[in-house]
Design a protein around this nucleic acid. Structure first.
Length: 350
DNA sequence: AATGCGGGGTG
DNA sequence: CACCCAGCATT
């Protein structure tokens, strides 16, 4: 086997990232939180969210004791909100079953919601130096290129092969540094576009480099055009400038987040709102339609603004809802486009 | 084995 | 505009 660990560890000393906020102090809780936030999310995006989160909830018991809405508020804008709900649930389970700590065991970790094979391994490797192989996007790219693995890494077969390479390359010692090193190499040298092979410690034995195929590996996901959906978001604004929000259903996009009432029939918009608010009339202010892109569809959003006479209670079968002023909705877990919409309305005159 | 789940960055 | 990113849960 052509071992990469010695070269990677030597490179890591001077060229790795040693000042990430979750590296110091390096506690299992902070490592866990960072790993969850970093799922499908880049380091630069995560850092401000991480700092805010640990400032508000410094320990695992703090997280377990916090209301879910507070956790979703801290997560608002980061995306993949099931991560926040699972994080909160897992914290409760740790208090209940593990004395308020994360278990130091891969199977016990992977049994917690939101923690899979790779995240469990990353937590044990980073927090304790225990020998476990990780396989995230960076490691997939480095190993696919180094070993010349063809095929899309999302497919089961290719993923299984990459796991075998990852296990075989993980050293017996300095596992925390090795794990960080291979991710740093993927993030800073072996990048998706224009990798800087001239500075790479693995270039000499890299199959993709030798065969000039770094541009082709790892193979791209099979293309598919995203379906387009439409919705109308209803902004009911009271005289005191409070707006009507409702909690979204427990499943589907933006599950359990606070958001604007929606309708798929714009002509029925006023009637939809009247069921919740009493009298409304369409406002003078207009907001332009916009498009929001998800991984699996595109959403065309038409905002409609209404002036509401009263802030009466909703009928019994309506979803959970409420009237919020700017200071209040600012702290809620809102979908990013809804937050932008409300911010825009705040700044624009009558 | 495939799909749902956000939001932002990149070429 | 397409693709990707410190993946996991669900079907």
């Amino acid at each position: 086997m052509n071992a990469i660990a010695p070269r990677l560890l030597a490179w890591f000393e001077h060229h790795g990232r040693h000042d990430l906020p979750w590296q110091d102090p390096r506690t299992p809780y902070r490592v866990w939180l960072s790993e969850i936030m970093l799922q499908q999310t880049q380091v630069r995006t995560v850092i401000p969210y991480f700092e805010r989160f640990v400032a508000a909830l410094p320990t695992l018991p703090d997280l377990a004791a916090a209301p879910l809405d507070a956790v979703l508020g801290l997560w608002s804008g980061l995306g993949y909100y099931s991560r926040a709900r699972n994080l909160h649930r897992a914290a409760g389970l740790c208090v209940e079953h593990h004395g308020g700590d994360l278990p130091r065991d891969a199977d016990a970790l992977a049994a917690l919601p939101g923690i899979g094979r790779s995240t469990a391994a990353a937590i044990l490797a980073q927090a304790w130096g225990d020998r476990h192989a990780i396989l995230d996007g960076n490691v997939k790219r480095v190993l696919a290129r180094f070993h010349g693995v063809d095929g899309w890494p999302g497919s089961t077969a290719v993923q299984a092969l990459l796991w075998r390479h990852a296990e075989a390359q993980t050293p017996d010692r300095r596992v925390a540094d090795y794990t960080q090193a291979i991710m740093d190499l993927g993030a800073t040298v072996c990048t998706r576009a224009r990798p800087t092979c001239l500075t790479c410690p693995l270039a000499e034995d890299c199959v993709a480099r030798r065969e000039d195929r770094t541009r082709e590996l790892p193979a791209a996901k099979p293309a598919r055009t995203l379906p387009l959906r439409h919705t109308t978001m209803l902004i009911a604004r009271a005289g005191d400038r409070r707006v009507l929000l409702e909690r979204r259903p427990p499943t589907g996009v933006w599950a359990q987040l606070w958001s604007l009432p929606e309708t798929d029939d714009p002509s029925a918009a006023a009637e939809t709102l009247r069921r919740r608010t009493g009298g409304v009339r369409e406002a003078q202010v207009r907001l332009p339609p916009f498009e929001h892109v998800f991984s699996h569809f595109r959403l065309n959003v038409t905002p409609l603004v209404f002036d509401a006479d009263a802030t009466t209670a909703a009928v019994a079968d309506a979803p959970e809802h409420g009237w919020f002023d700017a200071a209040e909705w600012a702290t809620l877990g809102l979908p990013a486009p809804v937050r932008r919409l409300l911010e825009k309305l705040e700044t624009c005159p009558e």
